[in-house]
Amino acid sequence: MRLYALCDQELLDNRGLSLEEFLDTAKLHNAEILQYRNKNADIAFIKQQLIFIRKNYDGFLIVNDAYELVDFCDGVHVGQEDLKAIDEDVFKAVKILRSVISKEKILGISTHNEEEVFQANEMDLNYIGLGAYRDTATKKDISGVLGSKLDEIASKSKHLVAAIGGVKLDDSFSSVTYHVIGSGLIK
């Protein structure tokens, strides 16, 4: 299993954990990628957190949504709704994002079903997040849980696939490159 650690600031705050504690746990589990997500802070705070992570973590660093901060990390991850906020046409939105973040940076998007995976196959991406695998308390807006269908749908992607949503350290997939785990790391 290859680990993609999702560091959600709201979850850290709710559990009284520091960013440093999360990084220690991610390193303990050999996380290759860390995504920093903060849906509530201003850009200056997110930038400060990215700088701290970069100083204390050697793996790939991805920022969620805040593509204007891509110079402080290795790439950007964007959800479907956030893509549509850039442009209603998700293909155009990815082209806009790619022009902003350049080819040297990682670009990933969330997908939730076979149709979105097929759309992603036509986009200039490095990976997709696919899920939710199971229900999770950290996401309130899960529209559909894929369960055992996740692996089959993942096999249709031309991009690397990161399983998202309720994934646990002991889950096993054959068509998935990364397990994205956030709350499961910090119990």
Rank of each mutant, 00 (worst) to 15 (best):
M1H: 05
R2Q: 13
Y4A: 04
Y4H: 08
A5H: 05
Q9S: 10
E10M: 04
E10H: 04
E10A: 10
L11D: 15
N14A: 13
R15A: 07
R15Y: 14
G16E: 13
S18G: 12
F22C: 00
A26C: 12
K27T: 12
L28I: 13
H29S: 07
N30D: 12
I33R: 00
I33Q: 00
Q35F: 07
Y36Q: 07
R37I: 07
K39N: 10
D42K: 15
F45D: 15
K47P: 02
Q48M: 14
Q49T: 10
Q49W: 02
Q49H: 14
I51S: 12
I51M: 11
F52K: 14
R54I: 08
N56L: 05
D58E: 15
D58L: 13
G59K: 03
G59R: 04
L61A: 09
L61I: 15
V63C: 13
V63G: 02
D65P: 07
D65M: 07
Y67T: 01
E68A: 11
L69E: 01
L69M: 07
D74M: 08
D74K: 07
D74T: 11
G75W: 04
G79W: 09
L83A: 02
D87I: 06
D87Y: 05
F91Q: 11
A93I: 00
A93N: 03
K95L: 14
L97M: 05
S99T: 13
V100R: 09
V100Q: 13
I101N: 08
S102F: 11
K103F: 11
I106E: 03
G108M: 08
G108E: 01
I109N: 00
S110Y: 03
S110H: 02
S110K: 02
T111Q: 03
T111M: 05
T111W: 09
H112E: 08
H112A: 09
E114R: 09
E115A: 14
E115M: 11
V117S: 00
V117L: 07
V117E: 02
F118L: 15
Q119R: 06
N121D: 02
N121Y: 01
E122G: 13
E122Q: 15
M123N: 08
G129R: 03
G129Y: 04
L130I: 09
G131I: 08
A132V: 03
A132Q: 04
Y133P: 03
A137T: 14
I142C: 06
I142T: 12
S143L: 14
S143H: 13
G144P: 01
L146Y: 07
G147A: 10
K149S: 15
E152L: 15
I153A: 00
I153G: 01
A154P: 06
L160N: 08
L160R: 06
V161A: 02
A162E: 01
A163K: 04
I164W: 01
G166A: 06
K168F: 04
K168G: 10
D170M: 08
D170K: 11
F173Y: 06
F173Q: 00
S174F: 05
T177G: 05
S183P: 11
L185V: 06
